[in-house]
Amino acid sequence: VDNKFNKEQQNAFYEILHLPNLNEEQRNAFIQSLKDDPSQSANLLAEAKKLNDAQA
């Protein structure tokens, strides 16, 4: 993981990586967004979790 991520951002990265119901395309999009703007990690994680739950 890129060293410019802080602890919260790293946690978001790993959580998104391991959400079971996202397809690869969705997962990659969230990860790319996280890399583009790490400050949005909490929002991105919340969105990813919502999508993950919706696809459960």
Rank of each mutant, 00 (worst) to 15 (best):
V1C: 11
V1S: 12
V1M: 11
V1F: 06
V1G: 15
V1N: 10
V1Q: 07
D2V: 01
D2A: 01
D2Q: 01
D2W: 00
D2P: 01
D2Y: 00
D2C: 04
N3M: 01
N3W: 00
N3I: 04
K4P: 08
K4H: 15
K4R: 08
K4E: 15
K4F: 13
K4M: 15
K4A: 14
F5M: 15
F5T: 12
F5S: 10
F5G: 11
N6K: 01
N6F: 02
N6V: 04
N6G: 15
N6Q: 06
N6H: 04
K7N: 13
K7A: 04
K7Y: 04
E8D: 15
E8L: 02
E8N: 03
Q9S: 06
Q9H: 03
Q9Y: 08
Q10Y: 06
Q10M: 15
Q10I: 08
Q10R: 05
Q10G: 03
Q10L: 12
Q10N: 05
N11H: 14
N11L: 15
A12C: 11
A12H: 09
A12T: 08
F13Y: 13
F13K: 07
F13D: 01
F13H: 08
Y14I: 14
Y14K: 09
Y14C: 14
Y14M: 14
Y14R: 11
Y14P: 01
Y14F: 12
E15G: 05
E15P: 01
E15W: 09
I16Y: 00
I16C: 01
I16R: 00
I16Q: 00
L17F: 07
L17W: 07
L17N: 09
L17G: 07
L17M: 13
L17R: 05
L17A: 03
L17T: 09
L17V: 09
L17E: 11
H18T: 10
H18K: 04
H18W: 14
L19T: 01
L19N: 01
L19G: 00
L19P: 00
P20G: 12
P20L: 09
P20Q: 10
P20S: 06
N21W: 14
N21L: 11
N21D: 10
N21Y: 11
N21G: 08
N21P: 00
N21E: 09
L22P: 00
L22A: 00
L22S: 00
L22Y: 00
L22K: 00
L22F: 02
N23E: 07
N23I: 11
N23L: 13
N23Y: 03
N23K: 15
N23H: 11
E24N: 13
E24W: 11
E24D: 11
E24G: 13
E24P: 07
E24C: 14
E24M: 10
E24T: 05
E24F: 07
E25Q: 12
E25L: 12
E25R: 14
E25F: 10
Q26P: 00
Q26H: 05
Q26G: 01
Q26E: 05
Q26M: 06
R27W: 01
R27A: 07
R27T: 07
R27M: 08
N28S: 14
N28D: 09
N28H: 06
A29Y: 12
A29M: 07
A29W: 12
A29F: 11
F30M: 11
F30R: 01
F30Y: 10
F30C: 06
F30S: 03
I31S: 02
I31R: 02
I31M: 09
I31G: 04
I31A: 15
Q32T: 07
Q32K: 05
Q32G: 14
Q32F: 05
S33R: 14
S33T: 13
S33Q: 10
L34W: 06
L34N: 00
L34A: 12
L34C: 09
K35E: 07
K35A: 04
K35P: 01
K35M: 09
K35F: 15
D36R: 13
D36G: 09
D36Y: 05
D36I: 11
D36P: 01
D36C: 13
D37E: 09
D37T: 10
D37Y: 08
D37W: 07
D37G: 08
P38I: 04
P38F: 04
S39T: 13
S39E: 14
S39K: 08
S39C: 10
S39D: 13
Q40G: 07
Q40M: 15
Q40E: 10
Q40D: 14
S41A: 09
S41D: 03
S41Q: 02
S41C: 13
S41T: 08
S41H: 15
S41V: 12
S41L: 14
S41W: 14
S41F: 15
S41E: 02
S41P: 03
A42M: 11
N43A: 06
N43R: 05
N43C: 09
N43E: 15
N43S: 13
N43D: 09
N43P: 03
L44D: 01
L44T: 07
L45I: 03
L45P: 00
L45Y: 08
L45G: 02
L45A: 04
L45C: 06
A46L: 13
A46M: 13
A46S: 09
A46D: 10
E47P: 00
E47W: 07
E47S: 07
E47I: 12
E47Q: 07
E47R: 04
A48H: 00
A48V: 04
A48P: 00
A48T: 01
K49F: 06
K49W: 07
K49R: 09
K50Q: 13
L51G: 02
L51I: 11
L51V: 10
N52S: 06
N52P: 01
N52E: 03
N52V: 04
D53H: 12
D53A: 15
D53N: 11
D53G: 11
D53I: 09
D53C: 12
A54L: 12
A54W: 12
A54K: 15
A54V: 11
A54Q: 13
Q55H: 08
Q55M: 12
Q55E: 13
Q55R: 08
A56N: 12
A56M: 14
A56T: 14
A56F: 06
A56W: 04
A56C: 15
A56Y: 04
